[in-house]
Each structure stands twice: as structure tokens, then as C-alpha cells.
Design a binder for these strands. Structure first.
Lengths: 233, 233
DNA sequence: GTGACAAATAAGTCTGACTTTTTGTTCCCG
DNA sequence: CGGGAACAAAAAGTCAGACTTATTTGTCAC
């Protein structure tokens, strides 16, 4: 994603970031820049740059005379795409997927409603294409092709909402969907009902029916929650 | 907030960050590290650390032989609290407030519903306290005191939801609420209906009535949208 | 015990030299 | 005239070492 490890400090981050987000260093742990520089065999300047980035993610705090201390999880910038990726790659992947799925369930219906009002003709066309692609690959174990269109579908919805905060969740949603296909239980073809819902959402957006787009999308996200046993009794 | 300007590089960021997010340097603009270092009268090491942070926020991209280029707005990490603060302090403050308010309208009702299921006894008590504080300061131009309780109220809801992604939006919501009181039109006492809604949400959460908590919170956020003329006809 | 003072420590800063990658130009040959 | 290869320049990247500064901790006197 983006450009991983495009410098020495990037390489260091690819090691340290996952380690910290995986809880390998408990909150309050103290690291020393010089020691880390030695460990990763880089100069202090490079190590300092890496620490600065971790600091900007609120993963660590650097203080004079004490060192680089790991902050408690509750202070991390959990919306940072890099942090999300690190956590999804690590041990608390299931927990992270649940959190993100709940977030989806809150955001996507509203985004769909807005998309019904704001989507351009091109975006409507894209959406319909995606839905068609999903239908076309919904049977016969073509999970990978299905996933591509599913990710594209949700991304278009989020972008078409016209809200930049929603739009920037496209990568996150894509990551969640991909995770479900690649790592979770997803051996069979997708649920036909879900496929139909996507087609209907595309319809509703095209027709500018905000309420219906929202309601249908809510059904989709409820399905996603149920898959992870996050119920709403 | 947090610890602004806790180093030389922090001071540089406090200058450059707002400038970039304000669109002072259009996307594609090229900056050179050495020139910037001169301009801010810091060493190249310090300047490099600042650039690294901006890079981790996806505000800029640093490439050899070309320089530090400003990325298009659509790629920025708009959930980074620092970026949010910079943008709220700058020219597109109104636009940013609208985006965030829409995000609130999606997230908070769901968070309230979850809070009704997951809130601890302490959190219920806190919530009730906040609601009482709001009522107590709802008349007589005690806007500042009202704001404090209002911010606390929404923060408790988000934390009590048990979802870490929601919890981390506490600062953002607080910033939006503070912005409304301090910079937008808010001369009179708060809307009595809104105050009542908060009290009722606290009730619903206490009683574990998720559906009601969600519905009532949705009414609160609809009110917030209407204040900014974001209608739902 | 309390206060001030001193020492130790780790981050912070600066400088200068060197390396590496990328880009743009030039020049030669087809 | 066009295209490709070699070359030169530019800017970021890296490293090493010396120095500064803030903060903590320990000690000693009162």
C-alpha cells in the first residue's frame, strides 16, 4: 500500500510499528534511541526520524532524560492508515476487524444516503458497473473477482457521498472486505441476498432515493456485523 | 491540546502544517529541505524530522532529486488530530466543521446505542452528572460552563460505546462543539429541546434501551446538522 | 524530613562530509 | 530527424562526532 519502506527509516518503522501495535512493548516501556539505532544498524539521525513518525502517531512519547516511552493503546491514532495496517497484520487482527466493521455500520448507511443526493452521473455508472461485476462473479468460486468489485462498490459510495471524511475511509473498508475474503471464513460463494442488496443500493442511488439507499445499506452492514457475531438483539 | 511545539521541529510544524493545510502551497508545489531549514533557521536534521512527520500525514511526499512535493488534499490523513486542528484553525474551518458534523451524525447515534448496552455503572453516573451540569447551565449565558458538560457528555458516550474507533473521536467532537460556541453564532442560551434530549439520552443509556438512545441521539445530531444548514428534506 | 545543590543521563541540536537516486541534457549513431 | 545511451547536476538520504540542554535522581547539609 502506498510506498512501504521507501527509506532506511521506513524499514525501521516496518519493524518497530508492528511490534509496538502488537503490544510487544507494554505501555510505559522505555526505549532508548541509541540502543534502537544500534539494534537496527542505522545512524541516530535515521532512528530519530523514525521515532518522530511514531510520535506523530501517538504511539510513543519522547522525553529528555527518560527516553522513548510507549503510550497506552487508548491514545494511539487508530485512524492512521499505517497503524490500521500494522494492527491488521498483527495479533489483534480479529479485534481490529470488529472495531472497523462497527465503524462501517455507522458510516456507510449515512454515506449511501448522501451519495443518493450527490452522486454524479459518472459515479452512478461506476456504481452500476460494480454491482454488475458483483453479480457476474457471485457464483462459481470467483471470490477474488467478486472482492474487487465489492471493494470498488463501497469506495464509490464513500467518495460519492461528497464528504471527505467518509471518502478517506475507502481504504479502510477495502481492507476489511479483503480481510474477510482472505483470512476469515469465506469458502463459499457470497450470500445471494447481499448481492441483491448491492444491486438495489445502486438503483436507489441512481434514482436519488436517499432514504432507501440508507436503509438498504444498513441491511448490508447488519449482515457484516452478523458475520462477526456482533448481534443487535 | 497534547503538547504543542515541544521541540524545534514542533515549532516548524506549527508553521508549516497550517500553511500547507490552508492550501498556501497548492498540490504539486515543490519545497526544498535546505531552503526550508534556512527559512525557519533550523538545522537540516530538524527540518528533516519535520518533513518526515508531514510525510506520515500524507501531506507531502519526499523524493530524491525532486524535493518535497505537496500532495493533493484528497490524500491527506484527515483523521489525524493534528491535521484536524490545523484545518480548524485555518481558512476552510467552515468546510471542516461541516464534514465533521456529518461524521458525528453518522457515528454518535450508533455509539449511543452501543453505550446503552455496554456502559458501566460509573459511566452511567458520569453521563447523568454531565446532563445535570448541562441543565444547570442552560440558562443565563453560562455558555462556557454548558460547553464543558456538553463535551464531557459526548465523550462519555463515545468511550462507553466500547468501540475504540468511536472513543478516539472524542477529541474531534469536543473540538466541533467548542468551535460552535466560540466561533459560530451562539450568542443565546442553548436550545431547551436539545438539553432535554441529552437528559433523555442519559436516561435511555442508564436503562439499557439501545434503540431509544440511538433514536434520541439521532435527533441531537439532526439538530446539529440543521444549525449548519445541512438539511435532509 | 526537607530543601537546595550537584552529577549523571538521554534526548536535542548542529555541522560537514559523503552517498545514492533520479532527472534532464547532450551527443552520437541509425 | 529521431531515439537511445552516456553523462552531469541536483536534491534527498545517510553517517559520524561534538556539543547543548533539560530532567531526574541522589546526596548532603540544615
Amino acid at each position: 500500500m502506498t510506498t512501504p519502506g521507501r527509506g532506511l527509516h521506513g524499514h525501521v518503522l516496518d519493524s518497530l510499528g508492528p511490534a509496538i501495535t502488537a503490544g510487544e512493548y507494554p505501555p510505559g516501556s522505555v526505549l532508548r534511541t541509541d540502543e534502537l539505532a544500534q539494534r537496527f544498524d542505522v545512524s541516530r539521525s535515521v532512528m530519530r526520524e523514525a521515532v518522530r513518525v511514531l510520535e506523530s502517531m501517538h504511539l510513543v512519547e519522547s522525553r529528555r532524560r527518560v527516553g522513548v516511552t510507549v503510550r497506552p493503546k487508548s491514545e494511539w491514532n487508530v485512524y492512521d492508515p499505517q497503524v490500521i495496517r500494522w494492527r491488521l497484520a498483527g495479533a489483534d487482527r480479529p479485534h481490529q476487524l470488529r472495531s472497523l466493521t462497527v465503524l462501517r455500520s455507522a458510516v456507510e448507511p449515512v454515506a449511501a444516503g448522501l451519495a443518493a443526493r450527490n452522486a454524479s452521473a459518472e459515479q452512478c455508472a461506476e456504481l452500476t458497473e460494480c454491482a454488475i461485476g458483483m453479480v457476474a462473479n457471485s457464483r462459481g468460486h470467483k471470490l477474488e473477482e467478486y472482492l474487487v468489485h465489492d471493494m470498488a462498490f463501497h469506495r464509490v459510495i464513500l467518495v460519492a457521498s461528497g464528504n471527505e471524511m467518509f471518502a478517506r475511509l475507502g481504504d479502510v473498508v477495502a481492507e476489511v472486505l479483503a480481510g474477510r475474503t482472505h483470512h476469515e471464513v469465506m469458502f463459499e460463494d457470497p450470500d445471494p441476498a447481499a448481492v441483491t442488496l448491492h444491486v438495489q443500493v445502486a438503483e436507489a442511488v441512481r434514482e436519488g432515493d436517499a432514504a432507501r439507499a440508507e436503509k438498504l445499506t444498513r441491511e448490508i452492514t447488519v449482515g457484516a456485523l452478523q458475520e462477526l457475531d456482533i448481534l443487535a438483539p
